[in-house]
Design a protein around this nucleic acid. Structure first.
Length: 475
DNA sequence: TCTGGGGTCCTCCCCCTG
DNA sequence: TCTGCAGGGGGAGGACCC
């Protein structure tokens, strides 16, 4: 218990930058598909349980927000174009944005695919001062990536991040130390990092709505209402106290995968039958980071949206697919399956970089629940239970024709899938960033040589096979 | 058609150990 | 030897972020 919180030594200049791409996924789609520019675009899952990962500003103007169900978003904005995420393209655009920062400093801390901090403390701001630095940074990122970005600067990460939010869309805000109070105090507490709907409601109950209200609260009250860590954090934030350094690297703590099924799973056999596929995806991610794991956690979300997790820890870290699948099976055995299941997840934690060989695997691999079991689903549509597979490249099949995917046609060139039609044909719009708005054609994938291909990069360059691609959260 | 998927961090609780 | 307590560690769940 820290009974005392004191002001840290803050840097004198607003030399921490936060760069944030605007509606990133949607902006990339608009950059690569000229016909989408100026139009509402929704990026996200197109299945019955899909949600919006990103909405263009045109869609936001009609009330669409990220994380809302795609069904409600479509109702709010029926004229919107809906496409599935293309992480290979977003990663390539992201690399360009990060490159703009790395031209100025090595001290870059990516927070997610579309935003990063940079410590420009060693940069000479020159005649135009810090606002000039921020403008130049923004212009360079736009030049390299070709999507709109916003830049905020302040003398802390806290202020820089809030400043970039205030700068959106496509702007720059630099908060000088003397202006910090004027900037922070009127803000709603909900805009602070770490204050979600639950904390905001708890604060509302003690009359705290703005940062100014927050500053009026004693430390004891805040820790009582929000807990030790969050309370202490907000006490500092309310005063603009934040001396966290820009950290170039962060250690990964866990890796996992989860999948929401298009229809609920009934009974242990159905759930267990899906476990190997989900564990495999989690294992692929673990392997990509080159680690071993000691703890395997299985997550089950029921139809009523309640969620349980059960964990099994191994005596030593394992990097062996079969051993981890076995552990996942044992964890699943601990879950009481009282209701239909909508989501199944597997996560690996207690990671260690050096995999220790599990010598005594014999006998442990073949134990019950984790083994693939015939689905036994009485239902009509086996595909409803199919876990998300890596989208293949190669000849387009109707069932793979998700809207937004890149294709190439021998006569019409490069394009993207607009819609798989009920008549078995596919609507494709043939265009790239270089061509300008293109023509939409309806083609029969059974007779036309439509090839599913990878995305292009920011300069229209072919990208490598996305085997190492990392699915990322919404922008 | 309510409510994805990748994470991190925190809190509470229980069990074990000294 | 028994008991009570403190502290550590792990598991479960929840809040939060993008």
């Amino acid at each position: 218990m820290s009974s005392e919180v004191t002001a840290p030594r803050m840097r004198p200049d607003p030399s921490i930058a936060h760069l944030d791409a605007d509606a990133f996924f949607a902006s990339v789609e608009q950059a690569q598909r000229p016909s989408l520019r100026g139009r509402p675009v929704l990026v996200g899952g197109t299945g019955p349980r899909g949600v919006v990962a990103a909405a263009s500003y045109e869609a936001r103007a009609l009330g669409v927000r990220s994380a809302m169900s795609m069904a409600s978003a479509r109702r709010a904005c029926p004229q919107a174009t809906v496409v599935v995420p293309r992480f290979d393209a977003y990663s390539a655009f992201s690399a360009r944005i990060m490159a703009a920062l790395r031209e100025r400093t090595d001290a870059v801390e990516p927070l997610s695919i579309d935003e990063a901090f940079a410590d420009l403390g060693a940069v000479d701001p020159g005649a135009d001062g810090w606002p000039g630095v921020a403008r130049a940074l923004r212009e360079r990122a736009v030049e390299l990536a070709g999507v709109p970005v916003s830049v905020g600067m302040g003398r802390s990460k806290l202020v820089a991040k809030l400043a970039s939010a205030a700068a959106k869309p496509a702007g720059v805000v630099v908060v000088a130390p003397d202006d910090e109070d004027a900037f922070l105090l009127p803000m709603p507490v909900r805009s602070l990092w770490g204050v979600g709907p639950v904390s905001a409601e708890r604060l509302e109950k003690i009359g705290v709505r703005t940062v100014e209200d927050l500053r009026g609260q004693p430390l004891d009250t805040l820790t009582m209402v929000l807990g030790e860590a969050a309370g202490t954090n907000l006490f500092r934030v309310a005063r603009g106290w934040d001396d966290r350094p820009v950290a170039e690297t962060r250690e990964r703590k866990s890796a996992g995968a989860e999948h929401t099924f298009e229809r609920d799973l009934h009974g242990r056999a159905e759930v267990a039958a899906q476990l190997p596929a989900v564990t495999d995806q989690a294992f692929d991610r673990l392997e990509r980071h080159g680690g071993a794991a000691r703890t395997v956690t299985v997550k089950v979300r029921f139809a009523g949206f309640s969620t349980v997790t059960r964990a099994v820890s191994l005596p030593s870290p394992a990097a062996d697919r079969a051993a981890l699948l076995d552990a996942a099976g044992r964890a699943l055995d601990l879950v009481e399956l009282t209701e239909p299941v909508r989501l199944l997840g597997v996560a690996f934690s207690a990671l260690s970089e050096h995999a220790q060989l599990m010598l005594d695997l014999a006998g442990s691999v073949a134990t019950g629940a984790a083994a693939p079991v015939a689905s036994g689903a009485p239902d009509d549509d086996p595909d409803a239970l199919r876990p998300v597979a890596r989208r293949r490249r190669g000849r387009l099949r109707l069932e793979d024709a998700a809207p937004g995917l890149d294709v190439v046609h021998p006569r019409h060139g490069r394009g993207w899938v607009v819609k798989a039609r009920d008549d078995g044909r596919v609507a494709v719009r043939f265009e790239t960033a270089a061509t300008g708005p293109g023509v939409q054609r309806v083609l029969d994938p059974a007779t036309e040589e439509i090839e599913l291909v990878g995305a292009l990069g920011p300069d229209g360059e072919e990208l490598p096979e996305p085997d190492a691609q990392e699915p990322r959260p919404e922008e």
